[in-house]
Write a protein that binds this DNA or RNA. Structure first.
Lengths: 343, 343
DNA sequence: TTGAAAGCGCTAACAT
DNA sequence: ATGTTAGCGCTTTCAA
């Protein structure tokens, strides 16, 4: 009932050549005459042969790249994914993704699963694992880490300059006349993550920019999480301050979404009652009724760069690692205005 | 430099048994005494052995389930994904996803890629491929199709009762006093898809419900696509009608998002100027400033049911196919009100 | 340039 | 209950 799959043996027989010859043509390897190539390709075509990636993996490559996402709910990752796919057009590589649910355990399980499935390379997006774990992964399989700072001799990195990006937001708000600018950050205590995670760099950038503007006394941070719930909780904290901020810089658009939930609940609006800025420039930010001021960190390009680095590392595992740092840009929309501007 | 991977041979040697014995323990297969089990498990533990899914796949299973998503931008799919993972906890199965970019070519390429990688089973979410292609896939590998109607002897299906769901929305709007209720649908011409695609069923449900309420003359459909752009375009069409509708039923929340874009642009709001309902009950719908009336189609449960059906089919490929039909429920929020209600 | 033959790590018949 | 052996479909030496 189920048709037997066409194998390389069938192709070889059909073309009247050896399986070795077919293999060489498949891989564009050295040692196949034009005549041989033609013959083999014709046989492949006629038989509708497709190589088994699983079997190939046992000796050579699986032509599979694994992408680890923290979660699917955050629309920012869709941008990165689109970028990742771009340089792969026209190659035999396929991208397979998995979501780690933002947990160290999940990341460990999934990186192992991808290694066990002989993937040729891994792209880890904003991983929360320890540096040690990342190194172990990278020593086993070519790896690129996206959205996390810190050099490594074992993996390449692509990240946005989050420190500067946060500064852009503060500069913008100060320029509008704000002084009480609060920030909602993702709570971080681990010293390693404090150095490497984008959220920590943004919080640092916020603090630094406030100081530069002589507003050190007005630094006000609500430490929650980079989720919609975190934004809601953080905003409630900030709104109940004795000295309520006139502007909130949420560390991510998804956080700003939660801030909006809290504002709505409190009968407030942005920018009428309070200015609000996010980070990531997700599709949500450009949404008409919201029109969120945010920071574009070029997710698409981050993804494309990551793929290019990975393909390079797959070809040559010993080449020195690279660190790509992308410059963010401010996207001014309608949720930020001078304090006291009527809604 | 790169440590050689531990194989089943290492484990066998370490435990002083045959590789067959180890294999049996790994698979909980018949023919391994408790003593043997203990010995082997200890060796596995000590050596930190993990089986190569790739190698296993060549003979048995890869313990990998492939999920095909139309796109990552639509937050509804995150719900389904969460549901898919649920019954897999505690098993050796891993879920690997890929996004087909909503194209037939993409779906064909990715289903092939998953088959070439020896996946044990496939879950196809709202596929746009021809029924013929789906059958071919399902005859090659156990397959469950989610979010698409139509029986098949080869694959199981899980779908929401979209026809009824659309009726719920119309009933609600009519109950509020609306008569000019318009619908934005995903344009469909292919007769097969007209029968099977959820969007077509929703459009049918809308038309049918309008007739039941004696509003056949007020049926008004803008045919675009189930995207934010489609919602925007459709809304612009509807807003420029001589007889402007007092309510719009968008076929999906993501479409409603585009409608909001258009409303904002036109200086209108919901429900003040026009009532608006969506479909899917995504995270976006519950967003405070929006609070969209919509239909909950229990994405989580759809995913969980799909996985259970798939696991069953993997165990027994010859069992008859099942069709699970889930009942949608209306989620009333703040974008719908009686016509003429002040915003 | 071509092909024969030996594996990759595992599972499944088939002994014992 | 345990082990021996032959593959799964491919790639990679290594001869010819």
């Amino acid at each position: 009932m189920v048709a037997r799959r066409i194998t390389i043996v069938d192709v070889a027989r059909h073309a009247g050549v050896s399986t070795t010859a077919v293999s060489k043509v498949l891989r564009n390897a050295y040692g196949a005459s034009p005549a041989m190539q033609t013959k083999v390709r014709a046989a492949i075509e006629e038989l509708g042969y497709r190589p088994s990636a699983a079997a190939r993996g046992l000796r050579g490559r699986t032509y599979t790249i694994g992408v680890l996402l923290p979660d699917l709910g955050n629309p920012f990752f869709a941008d990165i994914l689109a970028g990742i796919g771009e340089p792969l057009g026209g190659t035999d590589y396929q991208v397979l993704m998995a979501s780690s649910c933002n947990s160290q355990a999940g990341e460990a399980r999934l990186t192992e699963a991808m290694i066990d499935r002989n993937m040729d390379g891994l792209i880890l997006i904003a991983p929360v694992s320890s540096r040690r774990h990342l190194q172990n992964v990278a020593r086993t399989v070519p790896t690129v880490v996206v959205g996390r700072h810190g050099h490594s001799p074992d993996y390449d990195t692509v990240a946005d300059d989050d420190f500067t990006g946060a500064g852009l937001v503060v500069d913008h708000l100060v320029g509008l006349g704000h002084r009480h600018i609060a920030h909602i950050e993702h709570r971080e205590t681990d010293p390693e993550r404090l150095r490497e995670m984008p959220n920590a760099r943004r919080a640092d950038g916020y603090r630094h920019a406030m100081q530069v503007h002589g507003l050190a006394d007005h630094i006000d941070v609500a430490a929650t999480t980079y989720t919609r719930e975190g934004g809601y909780t953080g905003a409630r904290q900030l709104l109940s301050r004795e000295q309520r901020p006139t502007a909130i810089f949420a560390g991510a658009d998804i956080v700003a979404m939660g801030v909006f939930d809290a504002l709505t609940e409190a009968g407030l609006s942005a920018p009428g009652d309070i200015s609000l800025a996010g980070y990531d420039d997700t599709a949500f930010a450009s949404f008409g009724p919201i029109s969120l001021t945010t920071v574009d960190q070029a997710g698409h390009q981050m993804g494309a760069d990551a793929t290019r680095l990975l393909l390079g590392r797959i070809e040559d595992r010993s080449r020195p690692t690279a660190q790509v740092r992308l410059s963010p840009t401010l996207v001014t929309r309608r949720t930020t205005a001078a304090p006291g501007t009527p809604g």
